[in-house]
Design a binder for these strands. Structure first.
Lengths: 214, 214
DNA sequence: CACTAAACGGAGGAGATTCCTCCACTTGAT
DNA sequence: ATCAAGTGGAGGAATCTCCTCCGTTTAGTG
């Protein structure tokens, strides 16, 4: 929080890292609902130590996922550097889905406003414009069906991540089949128009606000 | 269980129905994890009454979902009566997704062996052959991409149902957009081959066995 | 080395939750 | 009118999760 604090003692700093590492692993494997007691055990540290360092789970989440969320935004920006409109979009989408397929916690943070605090919130805001630019370029080039909306992107990521939760323990890459089907369904020309309107920005916000992780 | 039991007293029968109705609603809204206490409250009945009638949640689940699961199998069989290979398949898939999008409990029962008992298990077994026939006819007619496997069908249903959970409270039909995209991705000719092998029957079984509902 | 502030661990209390039994009371059927 | 069948829901047992507290240990300093 305040940056003018004296540095932690060496052992304290070491434990802080251990806690963050353990939390990262557990959040990825099991989602954000793991208890701080679990994290302490995995970190090889007493619960007290965890609570002394982090006020609550949200603090840990914010610390851990700010960077990851930022990376997603960066991914979209970097993808734009690839001049191929379809390839840049498809690659970005695949990467995002891969990230979320491998990290239950990240998915929750990305899809629900109810987690993380200021830093994560800021990172979250950077994503939409970047995705919009990428998608609009692909649509302008006639590579992606024109009725796709940026608000569909998180939904697609949600689907592949869910398939990954379901099939992952048995077959780690099966989610890519679903993404493959979806990608083929995104290309122009689209055989049939989409049967329902896209979510508006406002609706996306309400959805993200209401959602409790799986 | 044993069918040679004397009939229930009128009030008991009435309460039994109330409990089943309440359970059906709650399972649909919230999934199978609702407590029997919740069900009792919704049914306007004491907990004791619920426990006297149903040994545990599984008994309720089995009672309630045998029919629904059977209907899904029937759906596939009936769809085969439509001579149009694409339309019959697409309609069936849409129906299945709609069922599961509107009922969290049904989805769990359909996707996890861990719920329901004998009657549900039997209904579950009828589904695969019916779906396989429908799909193979569509593929033979060149309407559906040949690399789609029957084992992909439950995964597709899972995706749309999940989107429905997520967006449903704000916009009940948005899941149809995702299904629309997927359906377009299922048609031949497929722009790109699927990037991972389908689950084998054996793998599907292991997945269904391991899975705990969301 | 000796000293002390900082850090540590983890037992355990408080508060929720869920499951399910039990029994005094009510009611349907004959 | 009788009574077996049925009812409601208080409350005990078993878990969980959160988080504090304090006796003990340790890193850093002169």
């Amino acid at each position: 929080m305040s940056s003018d604090t004296r540095p932690l003692r060496a052992d304290a700093e070491r434990n802080r890292r251990r806690i963050l590492d353990a939390a990262k692993d557990l959040f990825a494997e099991q989602g954000l609902e793991v208890t701080l007691d679990d994290i302490a055990r995995r970190a090889g540290v007493g619960v007290g130590t965890v609570y002394r360092r982090f006020a609550n789970r949200e603090a840990l989440v914010d610390e851990l996922f700010e960077e990851r969320m930022g990376q997603i935004a960066d991914l979209a920006v970097e993808a734009y550097a690839d001049p191929d409109p379809w390839n840049s979009f498809a690659t970005f989408l695949t990467r995002v889905c891969a990230e979320q397929a491998n990290d239950r916690g990240l998915r929750t943070v990305a899809l629900s406003t109810a987690h993380g605090t200021d830093r994560v919130a800021r990172a979250r805001k950077r994503i939409l414009p970047a995705v919009t630019a990428l998608l609009e370029r692909a649509q302008a080039a006639g590579a992606v069906r024109p009725d796709l909306s940026p608000s569909d992107v998180p939904l697609i990521a949600l689907t592949t991540a869910t398939v990954s939760d379901y099939t992952g323990p048995v077959s780690g890459e099966t989610w890519r089949r679903i993404l493959g089907i979806v990608l083929d369904g995104l290309r122009t020309p689209a055989p049939s128009p989409l049967p329902a309107p896209a979510l508006t920005i406002d609706q996306v916000e309400r959805v993200m606000h209401a959602w409790e992780a799986p």
